[in-house]
Amino acid sequence: MWNLPNILTLLRIALIPVFVVVFYIEAWWTPYAAAAVFGIAALTDWLDGYLARRWAQTSPLGAFLDPVADKLMVAVALVVLMQADPRILLALPVMVIIGREITVSALREWMAEVGARATVAVSQLGKIKTTVQMISITLLILRDSLLGFWVYPLGLALLYIAAILTLWSMVVYLIAAWPSLSGQTAMNTRK
């Protein structure tokens, strides 16, 4: 249970309040430090899964904690970004992303109850969505410029791409789950 992949997942959860505190410090270096904390947390997301598979250290605790850590990290980052820039331009993709995470989490929970959890397992599309999302949030945290490049507009554009991928992956999961949701699976079993 206390293997390196699970410790990295717990580290990601522990970095969430650190990120929030650093984000609200008023200093010239704050965006860089907050982006670094978020970036480290995002890297642990990739690393813990890689190590768990590579070292055959997957566990029920890790399978539970990993998606929780991801959703907490992303939701908290998006909420503080919204507070810093409360415009509709940012609010739209934030609503889509958080709404999708709630929907897919509920869908996975329900599918697990009916014994069809594998139907809505994480797909390659979901992994691409997560990567684009993490990069976009990191750029939005940086806010202004990095090495002379204005990163906020790029971060916002990538967040819209992430929101589109988010909706797309949700539709894929809903289509896969539709036979169970509509009761068709139960009817087919009785025939």
Score class of each variant (00 low, 15 high):
P5S: 08
N6A: 07
N6C: 08
N6F: 03
I7Y: 01
L8I: 09
L10W: 05
I13E: 07
A14W: 11
A14T: 10
I16F: 09
I16M: 11
F19M: 07
V22L: 09
Y24T: 06
I25C: 04
E26I: 06
E26V: 12
A27S: 15
W28E: 09
T30W: 04
T30G: 04
A35C: 07
A35T: 05
A36F: 10
V37I: 15
V37K: 07
I40M: 01
A42D: 08
L43V: 14
W46A: 11
W46L: 09
G49R: 13
Y50A: 05
R53Y: 08
R53M: 04
R54L: 14
W55Q: 06
W55N: 05
W55A: 05
A56P: 00
A56T: 09
P60W: 07
L61C: 01
A63C: 03
A63S: 12
A63L: 05
L65V: 11
L65F: 15
V68D: 06
V68P: 04
V68Q: 05
A69L: 02
K71Q: 06
K71Y: 06
L72I: 13
M73F: 03
V80K: 00
P86L: 03
I88S: 07
I88V: 13
I88C: 00
L89N: 02
A91T: 07
L92F: 13
I98T: 01
G99A: 12
I102P: 03
V104T: 15
A106D: 02
L107V: 11
E109M: 15
A112N: 06
R117S: 13
T119K: 15
V120T: 15
V120C: 10
A121G: 12
V122A: 15
V122I: 13
L125R: 09
G126D: 09
G126E: 10
G126M: 11
T131S: 12
T131N: 05
I135W: 05
I135L: 14
S136P: 08
S136C: 10
I137T: 09
L140H: 03
L142Y: 02
R143I: 00
D144A: 14
D144C: 01
L147H: 05
G148L: 04
F149H: 08
F149P: 01
G155P: 05
G155E: 05
L156P: 00
L156A: 00
I161C: 09
A162L: 06
A162Q: 04
L165V: 10
T166R: 01
L167V: 07
L167T: 11
S169L: 04
V171A: 14
L174H: 02
L174G: 08
A177F: 08
A177N: 06
A177P: 09
P179E: 08
S180G: 07
L181A: 14
S182E: 11
Q184W: 12
T189M: 09
T189F: 14
